[in-house]
Design a protein around this nucleic acid. Structure first.
Lengths: 241, 241
DNA sequence: CGGATAATTTAGATGGCTCTAATTTTCTGT
DNA sequence: ACAGAAAATTAGAGCCATCTAAATTATCCG
């Protein structure tokens, strides 16, 4: 009866919270990741925030929250919001690690354009084995960040968080190294890539255009007028020289 | 209301049989693949054969068959068995293409041992985008077979089927090139790999041991006594010299 | 050819994840 | 401090994919 081995992998096993290996559905992983990111962005994580992030109706969230609470991945105070337990946070970080490692791999090994890697990784992250994770990690030389500049959590769940300042804060004549670009909007990302405005690039602020925070920057040998939408997606570390 | 975009992707859309793009659940893909393989292995595809292959109870199969029939992926004659429609076969071949391309990629680009590639590919095949498929294909130089020697269907759904004879049919002193190894049993595969008995290897049959079809073969410079379990998993093309 | 056996299907249930509509609770502004 | 608005939850439903138990249909053999 090999039949009974494979069908109850999704969730049921995790409920008796064995320390074994938590096989969990894609939906659960998506919720954990969303909660983690909202939590990290400050304040309490509300039902509606999760709903919006996952493009799901609020009652679906309430429903899932209850399941997550039963699995001890989340602590829920009704009407008050939700908080990851250590177990939940660990799981969230594993998924984020998968995601960011995949992004790096897709960009580096397969040459996938940076504005597409997010969506690809989004689908792959749920089926990446530890074995493959390890192989990709080694092949890439154990990278610390993904192509957007976001830190890749370690296998132990440690995230090297660093805050960078917005490109918008720079003043004319300053030089800076791009450290992170927002991965929110693929369009923005595609345009940044076209202009060479990606992490590790050095830029030189030439001047500010009066209206609406537009900035003229020099990258390599060419100068570009950056609209607000682009400039606000770029985070930099000013050169101290 | 971006909310309504993403939730009805699994199956529901395919039911109104648009010629657009069939987003289909993992389960549907698994059934199609199973039916394809059983169909190809000859005879009528029965409910119980599918059930056994997928390690699922027969009523689950009946249930899914009805859904597949509604989607026009399968023709079902109650109590008589099932047959893929052209649309169903095309879809099955796409998945098999994904699977075999992934196997090749995992082996070649990531160095995953041959006895593990099947299970990895099994999970990845359902989330591989056309974009990534194309990139992997190009990177590998458009390979014709997977590491077990099974043909990779083209994007158009053409499979270059070739029949090879079993190693067991060879007679002493014959030389042959291994063309295919069965991917059924990972253990067998691991042992074959350990002995260098993989596709493209040239072997030399030294003699047959009396009992139970054991065979002594030379691979490279060393000779091995192959138990039946191993020998029967190897398919060869005899050298015509 | 007809009854026993095997295969298939129907019936009915469950769990996961989603939805809308209705209700309850919390927040907020005057 | 309270009424109206906003947020969260409950209620009730549906689809997918699975299960077990029971009924039906096909097959096979004496």
């Amino acid at each position: 009866m090999t039949r009974h081995d494979s069908h109850y992998e999704e969730g049921t096993r995790a409920e008796r919270e064995g320390p074994e290996r938590a096989s969990v559905s894609k939906a659960v992983e998506d919720y954990l990741k969303a909660i983690y990111k909202l939590q990290r962005a400050g304040q309490v994580v509300t039902t509606s925030a999760i709903a919006e992030r996952l493009a799901v109706a609020p009652p679906s969230v309430t429903n899932m929250i209850k399941r997550l609470a039963r699995m001890n991945l989340v602590r829920h105070t009704p009407y008050r919001g939700v908080e990851l337990t250590p177990a939940g946070e660990k799981m969230a970080l594993e998924i984020i690690r998968h995601h960011r490692l995949l992004e790096r791999y897709l960009a580096e090994a397969l040459g996938v354009p940076i504005d597409q890697i997010h969506d690809e990784a989004e689908r792959l992250e749920h089926v990446l084995s530890e074995e493959l994770e390890e192989r990709m990690d080694a092949l890439l030389g154990y990278p610390a960040t993904d192509p957007h500049g976001d830190p890749i959590p370690t296998k132990e769940g440690v995230v090297a968080t660093r805050e960078y300042q917005s490109l918008l804060n720079l003043t004319p004549c300053q030089r800076a190294v791009i450290r992170r670009v927002s991965d929110e909007d693929p369009d923005v990302l595609r345009n940044l890539a076209r202009l060479g405005l990606l992490p590790e690039a050095t830029i030189h602020v030439l001047r500010l255009e009066a209206e609406e925070g537009q900035i003229v920057v020099e990258v390599g040998d060419t100068e570009h007028l950056l609209p607000l939408a682009l400039a606000s997606a770029v985070y930099v570390e000013p050169c101290t020289a």
